[in-house]
């Protein structure tokens, strides 16, 4: 099943020390560059996320937050640099001489299994019922037996508070309900990392709190690693352990929510928080 020649496991000596952490972080951006044409969106971006950490990405519009999540989900390709996930290069494979080359579609699909994403616009499959939206990938990607996948889907629907909607079509659900299904669908793949890109921005205001509460519950009750892009500063404060402030494709500052929100070091962060709070 594994990719042909070189093992994908990262030998310790190939890891340039980015900090003092003895444990390899679950996610590591190593001088990641993303360009669209001449436009440099991410400029040698470095940051790490430890296993189990809940990280919130904040920053002004256009600062590259979505781009970071899309790179992690391999929906976009890095222009330069390497993203490491669990010690393996996410979108590269090792050649015989130890250098890295861009991975093919097959390898990318393998890498993606560890990562799940919830989109701003939900992106449920409108041609499938709620249950099948959730079971589709476990059955066809993980090879899970249908009965087992369905039983788990029912549990997940229960978790997200939609046990009555097994047989509904996405179009019959409210935005908030659709987003809950999308969260259940992502969780059904048992990802190690869950990416959330402004998952409440498309919702009517009265539906936001419910979805945020759900995500808070998931964060507290599982060991899943979360990267959230959000404009909900309360959520960032309550749920995340670490806030990364981005501007122009770089991390301006990072720290605990308490630190960032009450005593930001950088002028840029202060301006941004003044504007959104």
């Amino acid at each position: 099943m594994a990719t042909d020649s070189a093992p994908l496991k990262e030998p310790a000596d190939a890891t340039p020390a980015t900090g003092t952490a003895a444990v390899e972080p679950l996610v590591r951006f190593d001088k990641v560059v993303k360009r669209y044409g001449d436009h440099v969106v991410l400029d040698e971006l470095d940051f790490t996320v430890r296993r189990g950490e809940h990280v919130t990405l904040i920053g002004p519009s256009g600062s590259g937050k979505t781009t970071i999540l899309r790179l992690l989900m391999t929906l976009e390709k890095v222009s330069d640099g390497v993203i490491w996930v669990d010690g393996s290069p996410l979108s590269h494979v090792r050649t015989a001489d130890g250098s890295l080359k861009p991975a093919g579609e097959k390898q990318l699909r393998e890498s993606r299994k560890k990562i799940g994403m919830v989109f701003q616009q939900f992106n449920l499959f409108p041609n499938m019922k709620v249950l099948q939206n959730i079971t589709e990938a476990p059955v066809n990607v993980l090879g899970m037996a249908r009965e087992e996948a369905e039983a788990r889907a029912v549990d997940l629907l229960d978790l997200v508070g939609l046990s009555g909607k097994v047989d509904a079509h996405p179009s019959q659900l409210s935005g908030g309900q659709q987003q809950r299904v999308a969260i259940a669908r992502a969780l059904a793949m048992r990802p190690e990392i869950l990416l959330l890109d402004e998952v409440t921005s498309a919702l009517d205001p009265e539906l936001v709190a419910g979805v945020l509460d759900l995500l808070g519950d998931i964060a507290r009750s599982t060991d899943i690693t979360m990267l959230c892009v959000t404009h909900e500063m309360n959520f960032a404060r309550d749920v995340s352990k670490k806030v990364l402030m981005f501007d122009a494709g770089r991390v301006v500052e990072s720290g605990s929510p308490e630190k960032i929100f009450s005593d930001p070091e950088h002028e840029r962060t202060r301006e941004f928080l003044n504007a959104v709070l």
């Binding site: 699909r109 393998e110 799940g116 992106n123 499959f125 589709e136 066809n140 990607v141 992502a186």
Partner: peptide
């Protein structure tokens, strides 16, 4: 919509399954 393709990729669906089911 493009989001449908992206949802398929985010779920690691194979190209075949992406076409056939979605």
């Amino acid at each position: 919509p493009k989001g449908q393709w992206e949802a398929c990729r985010a779920l690691s669906l194979s190209p075949r399954r992406t076409w056939q089911a979605v």
